[in-house]
Design a protein around this nucleic acid. Structure first.
Length: 280
DNA sequence: CTACCATCCTGGTTGC
DNA sequence: TGCAACCAGGATGGTA
């Protein structure tokens, strides 16, 4: 599920229900996520109060009242769902179950266990292992055309790979990299160092617009629910190119029978969807 | 620095 | 219908 818009959507759901609440009971049902849960994880969380929910890239930041931050990454298949306790029996992939002091149940579910959780001191948050070196937030002002041109100067990598690199810009994954490049009319194969001037401006504007629209739609749902409430996001209905191989390009009037419509190629082992006519 | 690959897991879909 | 191959929103570490 989770790229920046999905994580942001989850965070908003968590903030409205969790801020100010105490964590009365914490049950750890399985500890071997991508990185094992820290020692005494459940005990260190129990009795704490949630001060504030934040986000950095694809990480959820749960600020606690003891100056620690509960860090959550959803990996590929992670979900956090809030609801009434025991609404459904715990499944084999419900790894952490938290009961708050107002009787809300938080369930962390992750079939593939690519997700991660950690507890880190708030004081050194930006320097912790997970967040150190992460690039700017794409919706903030410091993700600018000038920044993008500077950080990509001399880089031979394809621009698609650059967008996926969390050290260059935070929070973008495969779907939104494809959608942003389509919006900017830039080929995913273009060398990163050619992103200067108008092209850099187009890409930065496209990234910001696509992410903002996706957040407004509650993110994209594939096989998993997105929102903390369990509701589906609906941005998947607004995808221009992602998972639309062979369909007509929504931006072109060119003949699909001749061009083959939206194309798919594989870059660093991952599918890229794009319009070979419109994106150069 | 770069591209490419395998790896960590499970589950859903596709194709024979 | 059954079964195997393939694919998936991420990130890392190794290789050449």
């Amino acid at each position: 599920m989770p790229e920046l818009p999905e994580v942001e959507t989850v965070c908003r759901g968590l903030a409205s229900k969790l801020e100010g609440r105490g964590l009365a009971t914490v049950v750890q049902r399985r500890a071997d996520l991508r990185f094992p849960l820290p020692p005494d994880f459940a005990a260190r969380l129990t009795g704490r109060r949630v001060a504030r929910i934040g986000r950095r890239g694809k990480y959820i930041l749960v600020h606690l009242d003891d100056q620690m931050v509960w860090l959550v990454h959803l990996g590929m298949s992670g979900r956090i769902i809030l609801g009434p306790p025991e609404a459904t029996p715990p499944g084999p992939h419900d790894h952490v179950v938290v009961l708050t002091d107002d009787g809300t149940e938080l369930r962390y579910t992750d079939a593939r266990r690519f997700g991660m959780m950690d507890l880190v001191p708030a004081a050194g948050l930006a320097d912790c292992r997970a967040l150190a070196g992460m690039g700017p937030e794409p919706l903030e002002a410091d993700f600018s055309p000038a920044y993008l041109s500077r950080v990509l100067a001399g880089r031979q990598m394809p621009v698609k790979a650059a967008l996926l690199d969390q050290k260059i810009v935070a929070g973008i994954g495969n779907i939104y990299a494809c959608e942003s490049l389509f919006r900017a009319r830039l080929s995913p194969l273009r060398r990163a160092h050619t992103l200067t001037g108008a092209r850099a401006r187009r890409l930065v504007a496209a990234v910001k617009a696509v992410l903002a629209e996706a957040i407004a739609a509650g993110g994209s749902s594939l096989r998993d629910y997105v929102q903390a409430s369990g509701e589906l996001g609906y941005f998947q209905h607004q995808w221009a190119v992602y998972d639309r191989e062979g369909e007509a390009c929504p931006g072109c009037t060119c003949d699909r029978a001749r061009t083959g419509g939206i194309g798919r190629l594989v870059q660093s082992g991952r599918s890229t969807f794009y319009c070979p006519v419109r994106q150069r």
